[in-house]
């Protein structure tokens, strides 16, 4: 693959120009993320088996929060949005927000949210 020489000097300034952080995820980041994901999953399953906690008002919110943390972690590190161009963040966040708001709207319309998110059963 031959390169047009005109391109070359340009490529070298890409990073600074595009506001991309110099840091990149490394092996240690990757396995730490994996450990965190596993731990959160373990906690989720663990609290599922504590009947008193399942009965409490905290059960659903805590599960939702843990799930959201896992979601964000994978997106930021494994999908490297944290290190990537802000355009990709916009392309993902916009639809995600619309999807989330639509879901909330539907839950409300079908009476799933009338009592409050945290209500058990």
């Amino acid at each position: 693959m031959t390169h047009d020489p005109v391109h070359q000097p340009h490529s070298t300034v890409d990073h600074a120009a595009m506001g991309i952080a110099k840091e990149h995820p490394t092996w240690s980041t990757y396995w730490k993320v994996a450990v965190i994901l596993t731990l959160i999953t373990a906690i989720e399953v663990w609290i599922y088996y504590i009947p008193s906690f399942v009965a409490s008002r905290l059960f659903v919110p805590s599960l939702l929060i843990m799930s959201a943390v896992k979601f964000v972690t994978v997106v930021l590190f494994y999908m490297h949005l944290r290190y990537d161009h802000k355009l990709f963040r916009a392309l993902f966040m916009g639809p995600l927000i619309i999807a989330a708001v639509t879901m909330l709207g539907l839950m409300f319309l079908f009476g799933k949210l009338s009592i409050g998110v945290g209500a058990p059963n």
Binding site: F88, L91, F92, P95, A99, T102, L106
Partner: peptide, 25 residues
């Protein structure tokens, strides 16, 4: 300066958010 295919796949992933939002809802 970004790759075409990568923009397209992110747009696709955005679209998939709505797909799974409908299913999960």
């Amino acid at each position: 300066g970004l790759d075409n295919k990568k923009i397209a796949i992110w747009a696709f992933i955005g679209s998939e958010c709505m797909l799974f939002a409908s299913l999960i809802s």
